[in-house]
Design a protein around this nucleic acid. Sequence first.
DNA 1: TTAAACTGTATGCATTAACATAACAGTATT
DNA 2: AATACTGTTATGTTAATGCATACAGTTTAA
Lengths: 140, 140
Amino acid sequence: MNSEFTVAVHSLVFLAYLPEHMASSETIARNVSTNPTRIRKIMSFLREQGFVKTKEGVGGGYMLNCDPQKVTLAQIYRAMACGALKPNWNSGDPGQDCLVASNMQSVMDHIFREAEVQYRRCLEQTTICDVLEQVKHCQS
Amino acid sequence: MNSEFTVAVHSLVFLAYLPEHMASSETIARNVSTNPTRIRKIMSFLREQGFVKTKEGVGGGYMLNCDPQKVTLAQIYRAMACGALKPNWNSGDPGQDCLVASNMQSVMDHIFREAEVQYRRCLEQTTICDVLEQVKHCQS
DNA sequence: TTAAACTGTATGCATTAACATAACAGTATT
DNA sequence: AATACTGTTATGTTAATGCATACAGTTTAA
């Protein structure tokens, strides 16, 4: 899995943390430790999905457009990284005669899909606010 | 996640499928659709973990050394790919002042670990034999 | 109306990870 | 001693990932 999901969660938590619930791509990028372009791309996507609003022009930036107590990591995962747990290489080959070789691909597909459902189910337990609280009370 | 887990499962299922429960790296590689070197590396590892035995020399190869009805995909996952679901890029930076930036990394680590536990729990439901049966009765 | 500070988006670059290929030593069989 | 295997390392190639740059479009404000 690439880290767009991580960046999305971090950005939303950061926005929830700020009093104004608003920040520019550069401010977010500094906090996340990445570059503004990457933030803009990811935030654009989060806007399409309704998680944030954007304001262009001077004094613009991104602002929270959802209730951080209601939005779960599963929703963010679904939007950003669905299907990303499965390796992109497939074993076997549907063209071969052997039952194992020819069917393994679809069987493994099914297994990975099921396991990902469980993965998401775990992420359903945690909201953006939960993460924010954990961050605040993290002893480190 | 890379596909070593997939290859390992496929190889074990293939061995369980064969009457002699034995095959060379080249035979397995053909079935899996990859190269013998990769199979040997993965099978070497599976031998260390006790899943297979190897026989060197002429007429040698790999043979099942476990009960395919008892070995679950979770055990194989644990051996081959534990921790592989987490992205290897980390957001934030422990050196920053901001609570969010500095603690996000360890909070996300914890979340990914928990989610992976659920993922593995799903894989516990399926044995090598289960996969073999699914492969045999796959309508495709 | 013009400058400044933003977002949106495209493109190319650099690095790393993933998979393939080749080579060769070690080992068992015949 | 030839053959057919595994074990392991080194090297090549391709794809994924994240970074940097550039520039058009938008809003604000002097």
